[in-house]
């Protein structure tokens, strides 16, 4: 990393802290809930930013990965294994200490997978799916690529919607908190608000630094980094217990909109736009016109300001942007 990127990252971290302090001093601590969520969405956005901006690939099924990671963790941490305790798999999990007993909704005892184990499993399964899907999908281009990714997102959505076990249209609620360290818990509890805000944006900073570094390497490795970011987003974004998980595939398009308006090859631009738009949307400022706003943004950007967003030399520009050097001649 060259110097000015460190500076950018430090500035970013400083503004994250400044925002928290601002909510503290203005007594608007309740905003932190939405600020935290926009942090998690931002993880998806920087992943997508690199996919569209760096690799020039459109994905309109991106929230599919988010949903796979989220639903896997939520399902594993809430599914009661008491009845299959005697089974071989459950027995093995129990012996390795991967099961936890907790109180269920009705005050009874429920036995389910430890959040950490569930999270690792969710990451693994998302990576496998991303790998299996990514190989053939990324060979496609243009309309075919767009449709294939839309199709992928829709499949995930339909499977969730058709499965009682995933809560169908209601999603899975009552997901337990996610203990990072003793006293450091990812959850929706109001007392944990400040901490969760920092966990969320800390992950974003870590993600940004990871991507800034990996972007220097060859395309293949960068693309793998992008998948990594998706998976991290998918696995981490959901553990905040109170937020009901709902199939959010439709939201894929808004991620594309955010990346478009932020500047497709502009990680920081996407991050800032993602932060602002997600926050406004989560606070309900767009009211019932929420999706319409994102649709309008998408059209307006593409009609009036496609330059800088969809250029052919995008690839080189991104390299130049991230390395601070002048773009090299020819494709790498």
């Amino acid at each position: 990393m060259s110097g000015h990127k460190y500076l950018q990252t430090v500035l970013f971290a400083a503004s994250v802290i400044a925002i928290q302090l601002a909510t503290f001093f203005t007594g608007t601590g309740h905003y932190l809930t939405q600020l935290t969520m926009s942090g998690y969405y931002s993880l998806v956005i920087i992943g997508l930013c690199l996919l569209i901006g760096y690799a020039g690939q459109i994905s309109i099924g991106h929230a599919g990965f988010f949903a796979i990671g989220g639903y896997t963790t939520a399902f594993l941490t809430t599914y009661d294994l008491s009845s299959v305790k005697a089974g071989a798999v459950a027995g093995l999990l129990s012996k390795t200490g991967m099961l936890v007993t907790r109180e269920d909704l009705y005050g009874g005892q429920a036995l389910s997978l430890h959040p950490w184990a569930a999270c690792l499993f969710a990451i693994a399964i998302t990576v496998v799916i991303a790998y299996l899907i990514g190989g053939p999908v990324l060979k496609l281009k243009g309309h075919y690529l767009a449709m294939a990714t839309l199709g992928f997102g829709t499949i995930v959505y339909k499977i969730v919607l058709g499965s009682e076990k995933f809560g169908a249209a209601d999603g899975i609620s009552d997901v337990p908190g996610f203990l990072l360290l003793p006293g450091l818990e990812v959850s929706g509890k109001p007392s944990m608000r400040v901490m969760n805000y920092y966990i969320s944006w800390g992950l974003v900073i870590a993600g940004v630094m990871l991507l800034l570094n990996l972007v220097h390497s060859r395309v293949g490795r960068a693309l793998r980094a992008i998948h990594g970011a998706e998976d991290a987003a998918g696995a981490m974004g959901i553990d905040t217990a109170k937020f009901k998980l709902k199939a959010s595939i439709i939201k894929s398009v808004r991620y594309v909109a955010i990346v478009a308006i932020g500047g497709m090859a502009n990680l920081w631009g996407s991050l800032i736009m993602g932060f602002i738009l997600n926050f406004l949307s989560l606070r309900g400022y767009f009211g019932t016109y929420d999706d319409a706003v994102f649709g309008a943004i998408l059209i307006a950007i593409m009609l009036f300001a496609p330059e800088g967003l969809l250029r052919r030399e995008l690839f080189k520009d991104v390299r130049a942007f991230f390395s601070g050097k002048k773009p090299r001649e020819g494709r790498q």
């Binding site: 459109i58 309109i60 243009g142 309309h143 767009a146 398009v253 594309v256 909109a257 478009a260 016109y289 999706d291 319409a292 994102f294 649709g295 309008a296 943004i297 998408l298 059209i299 593409m302 009609l303 496609p306 969809l310």
Partner: peptide, 17 residues
């Protein structure tokens, strides 16, 4: 092509909403 894809997706959202 990419621009047209995104514009028609935007149109579909607006019509739907």
């Amino acid at each position: 092509v990419l621009r047209m894809i995104i514009i028609t997706i935007g149109i579909s959202i607006l019509v739907r909403e």
